[in-house]
Computed example of a mutant assay.
Amino acid sequence: MNAHPHRHDHHAIGEVAGVVVPDSHLARQITELVRDTEDDLLYHHSRRVFFFAALTGDGKALKYDPELLYAAAMFHDMGLVPAYSSKDKRFEVDGANLARDFLRRHGVAEDDIYTVWTSIALHTTPNIPEFMKPEVALLTAGVEMDVLGMGFRNVADADRLEVARRHPREPDFKEGIIDHFYQGIRNKPETTFGNVKADVMAYKEPKTFQRMDFCRLILGNPWPR
């Protein structure tokens, strides 16, 4: 798939459903990097995640930094892209590390960088981010809304549909995102231990994928009892 069919759209969609994309130099640089790196499916997904995260935050009257939330949303799946995928780390960590390095080069404060890093690293770990800083909680909320259809009640239907219209889910986001996950982790299946991506491997390789088992690890470790 051609990743750059609409180069001019870097700044074409600056506001959706009342949510404004931060118009800073940093945000523009992030948009250009991600648009030039990810294919359409991941790019539109990442933008939807930002808008859903921001709408959720606004609906709950949470105070968050839009620029940090935008950075987290746009980088959150970059670890699935071959150019930024490590051989041995979870894809979430690869994306978090890329965001950290990018933000450091742009002089962002370390505390803010840590917030973005944590947001990305934990975005597939359910039931923990919601109790953390708003940016961390909201990134996961945005991802869960777009991928899992969770939290619809937190965003007006018209706003949610407007985001999906401006950043479309066609032709088939559901199967497409599963395939993107699979392509990003298939060469390092051990990184799926204890997280939801093991389900992706089992779905794509039902006959060959062997899950690591927590209890077997306990019972088979070097301790005598």
Rank of each mutant, 00 (worst) to 15 (best):
H6F: 15
R7T: 03
H10E: 10
H11A: 07
A12T: 13
A12Y: 10
E15K: 15
V19M: 10
S24T: 12
S24N: 12
R28A: 12
T31S: 11
E32Y: 09
R35F: 12
D36N: 04
T37W: 09
E38P: 00
D40I: 05
L41K: 09
Y43W: 14
R47I: 08
R47T: 09
F52I: 00
F52P: 00
A54L: 12
L55G: 01
T56K: 11
D58I: 05
D58E: 07
D58H: 13
K60G: 00
L62F: 14
A71E: 11
Y84T: 03
R90V: 01
R90Y: 09
L98N: 01
L98V: 01
D101H: 14
R104D: 11
I113S: 09
W117C: 02
A121I: 05
H123N: 04
I128M: 15
F131W: 08
K133P: 05
E135K: 14
L138F: 05
L139V: 06
L139K: 02
A141P: 00
G142Q: 11
M150C: 06
L161S: 03
R165W: 13
F173T: 14
E175V: 15
H180Y: 06
I185K: 01
E190W: 02
V200P: 11
Y203S: 08
F209C: 02
R211G: 04
I218Q: 09
P222E: 02
W223I: 00
W223N: 00
